[in-house]
Amino acid sequence: MEQSLTVWLLPAFALLAGIGIGFLIARIVPNAAPNRTQRQLDDLQERFDTYQSEVVTHFNTTASLVKKLTQSYQEVQEHLSEGANRLALDELTRQRLLAALHADEAASPRERLTPPKSNEAPKDYAPKSPDAPGTLDETFGLKGKY
């Protein structure tokens, strides 16, 4: 009986020792991996935040540059209008210069295509005269009567 007890106790103790050693190793070793993973996650988050701030900065700069461009265009238009009013020798020349400056604003919209005059759908067959046989008629295309 003692021998059978030893046969069962020795593997049981080995199993418990293996479980204990495995548990200790599992608790000690993986601590390095989560720290590395956490560092990678933090690095990616920092890069993403940096990218987002760069995008916001880019679009803010673009918006301010477009605003400056619009203001410059308006200033040039005003300068040309004032020059046309001040430097034109006669009224006809002044009117022509001002009309040329404001031609872009008063330009008519592009002409659209006109819709067809008839709402009838296009036919997928050749039209026929009223007394001629249709394409589904038995005698269509025959030259003589049979």
Rank of each mutant, 00 (worst) to 15 (best):
residue 37 T to P: 00
residue 65 L to Q: 13
residue 32 A to F: 12
residue 22 G to P: 00
residue 21 I to S: 05
residue 88 A to N: 01
residue 43 D to C: 09
residue 97 L to I: 07
residue 91 E to A: 10
residue 91 E to I: 05
residue 92 L to T: 13
residue 61 T to Q: 11
residue 76 V to L: 15
residue 32 A to D: 04
residue 87 L to W: 13
residue 76 V to I: 15
residue 27 R to N: 06
residue 55 V to P: 01
residue 90 D to C: 03
residue 52 Q to C: 06
residue 39 R to H: 10
residue 73 Y to T: 11
residue 96 R to I: 13
residue 51 Y to E: 13
residue 57 T to W: 12
residue 97 L to A: 04
residue 90 D to I: 11
residue 92 L to K: 15
residue 38 Q to F: 10
residue 51 Y to C: 05
residue 57 T to Y: 10
residue 30 P to S: 10
residue 40 Q to P: 01
residue 95 Q to L: 13
residue 38 Q to A: 08
residue 88 A to T: 07
residue 87 L to G: 08
residue 86 R to S: 14
residue 89 L to A: 10
residue 69 L to P: 00
residue 78 E to R: 14
residue 70 T to C: 06
residue 79 H to D: 09
residue 43 D to P: 00
residue 24 L to P: 00
residue 29 V to D: 06
residue 44 L to D: 08
residue 65 L to W: 07
residue 21 I to E: 00
residue 30 P to W: 03
residue 96 R to M: 12
residue 36 R to H: 06
residue 40 Q to R: 14
residue 41 L to P: 02
residue 37 T to D: 09
residue 60 N to R: 13
residue 91 E to G: 04
residue 80 L to W: 10
residue 54 E to G: 01
residue 98 L to K: 06
residue 24 L to F: 04
residue 79 H to I: 04
residue 98 L to A: 03
residue 73 Y to A: 12
residue 43 D to G: 09
residue 84 A to V: 02
residue 49 D to S: 10
residue 78 E to L: 11
residue 82 E to S: 06
residue 68 K to E: 05
residue 84 A to D: 00
residue 33 A to W: 03
residue 97 L to W: 01
residue 34 P to K: 11
residue 31 N to D: 06
residue 71 Q to W: 01
residue 46 E to V: 05
residue 40 Q to H: 05
residue 58 H to N: 03
residue 39 R to N: 04
residue 24 L to W: 07
residue 56 V to F: 06
residue 30 P to Y: 03
residue 78 E to Q: 14
residue 54 E to S: 07
residue 29 V to T: 02
residue 63 A to C: 01
residue 69 L to M: 02
residue 37 T to K: 10
residue 62 T to Q: 11
residue 88 A to F: 02
residue 71 Q to Y: 02
residue 37 T to M: 14
residue 27 R to S: 02
residue 37 T to I: 15
residue 41 L to F: 09
residue 34 P to Q: 07
residue 62 T to V: 07
residue 96 R to K: 15
residue 75 E to I: 06
residue 43 D to S: 13
residue 30 P to E: 06
residue 38 Q to T: 11
residue 23 F to P: 00
residue 23 F to E: 03
residue 25 I to P: 00
residue 21 I to L: 07
residue 76 V to R: 10
residue 74 Q to Y: 08
residue 57 T to R: 15
residue 79 H to G: 04
residue 34 P to W: 07
residue 95 Q to E: 15
residue 37 T to G: 05
residue 80 L to M: 15
residue 41 L to W: 08
residue 93 T to Q: 09
residue 45 Q to G: 07
residue 98 L to C: 02
residue 29 V to W: 08
residue 68 K to D: 09
residue 91 E to L: 15
residue 94 R to H: 09
residue 97 L to H: 01
residue 37 T to S: 05
residue 76 V to C: 07
residue 93 T to M: 11
